[in-house]
Amino acid sequence: MSLLVLNNVEVVYDSVFLAVKGVSLEVPKAGLVALLGANGAGKSTVLKSISGLLAAERGLVTRGQVTFDGEDMRVLDPPARVRRGLVHVLEGRHVFGHLTPEENLIAATSMHPDRAKVKRMVEEMFTHFPRLAERAKAQAGYLSGGEQQMLAIARALMTEPKLILLDEPSLGLAPFLVDEIFDIVRRINAVSGVAILLVEQNAVAALDLVETAYLIDQGRIVMSGTAAALAANPDIQDAYLGGAQKVDYHAVKHYRRRKRWLA
């Protein structure tokens, strides 16, 4: 059975704005799944409906089921979901800027009463992320974007998750840093068997990393399949991968190719 199952989830903001219109998706145990889509397609909203953080933005899951590890998540508040093993790494990193990296890590351990264990976990994180260990005494707000993203991921790992919801880890990072972050994600998934649901606009990098992917557009899942199948799809190539064939721009007509699923 899958670790996370979304069945026909519908999200409404402010009681009027329907942002997600019946999304269903699955993440298997230790799976690596991407949710792709353009700006405003509803990717982040889907993640927040899973982690429960919608409540802070006056959003509400009005229909459908969110099942994690066989348990209904809709009745639990976000801290309770974290304790079940479901952690959300927010878009834009959201590190605690005035705390040091070490304090950032400790702040995420409210579920672990055992102090010796917390200490051990912090040391473990610093061996996995040596760049954070170098900056251990600086305020996290002054770390570089890549370091902050590493810190956000390390902080999420401190909660001992079964599934990480990873929102736009490549946001605002140089290409070589994107590669480094994606390597880290791959390693976490392979070594510790943590499942990952990755939301990305950078479809090229994401399809290279994951096993399966879903494509979301205007609040609906419009396509799903293995990463290879999606990467080969001409519509996806056109809309998200920047076109595979060479285009003669003199011959291009002045309308854009219609996305076929909108018909």
Binding site: V82, R83, H94, V95, H98, T159
Partner: peptide, 12 residues
């Protein structure tokens, strides 16, 4: 520092 982030890592 960040209420949303605190919530997301399990702080009540």
């Amino acid at each position: 520092d960040d209420q949303m982030a605190s919530w997301s890592v399990g702080i009540r």
